[in-house]
Nucleic acid binder design. Structure first.
Length: 450
DNA sequence: TTTTGAGTTGTTCGA
DNA sequence: GTCGAACAACTCAAA
């Protein structure tokens, strides 16, 4: 009797899952998760908690159809062949991944196991969106136009295999703390439903960190508690807001395709000239940035939101990233690592792609002298200062516009609301005008080949 | 092969 | 206060 494994990785759902669809067309299927200690270690607190919650939710879904999630521990290269032999399976189905780490591991697994690969984490698999010349576009807009034209694979439907409950499953670790957001596909559906209430305001609201204008689905896409294919079907492109959101899914595909073709982008700038930038070695500045104590309220608000919740609003991710790279002239790789550690949706292709974008070192049509002014950005996107006051409570007594730039205020005026710069809140660690010129000079020098 | 047009998310300066 | 232009020069996609 044919028995297969569905090896769940970052696709923790049963709907819209090509690997599960294929595996569950066997007579019998074993749903498997390989808990890799190295990955769990590096996941950071928020992703770890979310992963364990999502695995619990997947287990619950499987119970409803008479199964359980079979959990084994160890590097996949060892655990997968061992489990396959123990359970007597004839085929293994899994959704492929794009990073160098994943492909190396997966190649090693495939050398000793009969694995069939599928694509369930992207709208379109790497290699399927090509320019007229057959290359992957290094400019987003042409990629996007092609991406819209590629036919979507049909939605994967689950099969009717008997779900085998095998002995020898390890218990799932208990999360240190309870999940803040409801995990799993049911949580994802609730988040999507809430987003669809406001999706038509998305083009305007998505840049307002004080508002709930974004989808909040990033971690669901990261762990696959919602499938991008199903998401696309549900959201569609019928209105400007919906189309704007779907466009973001194209960005997601694009960054994944780029990393698939260029795995070295994790370490290297897309354009080699930018690896000649003379980054500053500034541990104190890096620490101030991580701690949310730069003296720039919007930057500090974002960094504190990240550390407290594992999530940061997208607009503020751009502002904080720009500040680290351009204002502090600190290597984007330091920031990428910190974000990856803390973000609940931390995902190598997306994180690397967006950091290279912010640093101006990546695939990017924007000129390098486009340097965000953190004060202007705050005034534009958090005009009332609500977001700042939420995450920087020591400035709660300040109204706009002072809350955006307390260092410009009269010290007496600040003292009246309990703010003493250099004491209750930091003096700006760098002056933006000076920092801007310094960054432009450093980038220019790198491009000029010095 | 050569040419042409275009390129996520900005800021600053001067009229 | 508002508005338009400058900010550089390049790479890429497409014709």
């Amino acid at each position: 009797m044919a028995r297969s494994i569905c090896w769940f990785r970052r696709d923790l759902r049963l709907d819209d899952n090509p690997a599960w669809s294929a595996a569950s067309r066997s007579a019998e299927v074993v749903p498997l998760y390989v808990l890799e200690p190295q990955l769990l270690e590096s996941a950071g607190p928020f992703r770890r908690r979310r992963l364990l919650g999502d695995l619990g939710a997947l287990d619950d879904e499987l119970r409803e159809i008479g199964g359980r999630l079979h959990v084994v521990v160890g590097p996949a290269q060892e655990a997968l062949p061992r489990t396959a032999a123990q359970l007597g399976v004839t085929s293994i189905h899994a959704n492929a991944d794009v990073t160098a780490f994943a492909t190396r591991r997966d190649d090693a697994c495939a050398a000793s196991c009969p694995i069939e690969w599928h694509w369930g984490t992207l709208l379109h698999p790497p290699g399927s969106v090509r320019t007229a010349r057959g290359t992957l576009s290094l400019v987003f807009t042409p990629f996007y136009r092609r991406w819209l034209d590629v036919d979507l694979a049909p939605l994967a439907e689950p099969g009717s295999a008997r779900v085998v409950v095998a002995t020898g499953s390890e218990p799932l670790p208990t999360p240190d703390t309870d999940a803040v957001e409801p995990p799993g596909p049911s949580g994802a559906r609730d988040r999507l439903e809430a987003f669809l209430e406001v999706v038509d305001a998305y083009p305007d609201l998505r840049d307002r960190p004080a508002d709930d204008g974004t989808s909040k689905l990033s971690a669901d896409l990261r762990f696959g508690t919602i499938g991008p294919r199903a998401l696309f079907d549900i959201v569609g492109t019928a209105t400007a807001g919906r189309a704007a959101f779907v466009r973001q899914l194209a960005w997601r595909d694009w960054y994944a395709h780029l990393l698939w073709e260029r795995p070295d982008l994790v370490h290297r700038a897309l354009r080699p000239a930018y690896d000649r930038i003379d980054w500053r070695d500034d541990p104190a500045g890096l620490q101030a940035w991580k701690d949310g104590r730069t003296g720039y309220p919007i930057v500090d608000a974002g960094m504190r939101q990240l550390r407290a919740t594992g999530w940061m609003h997208n607009r503020v991710r751009m502002i904080t990233a720009s500040f680290l790279v351009k204002d502090l002239l600190i290597d984007w790789r330091h920031g990428e690592r910190w974000f990856r550690h803390l973000l609940v949706d931390g995902d190598v292709p997306q994180n690397v792609g967006n950091w290279q974008w912010a640093a101006g070192t990546g695939p990017d049509a924007a000129p390098y002298f486009r340097v965000f002014n953190p004060t202007t950005q705050a005034a534009t996107h958090d005009p009332r200062g609500d977001y700042i006051r939420r995450w920087v409570p020591e400035l709660a007594g300040l109204a706009a516009p002072l809350v955006h730039d307390p260092s410009s205020a009269d010290p007496l005026e600040l003292a009246a609301v309990g703010v003493v710069l250099g004491d209750t809140y930091p003096v700006p660690i760098v002056e933006h005008g000076f920092a801007r010129e310094r960054a432009l000079a450093a980038y220019k020098a790198a491009l000029d080949g010095q």
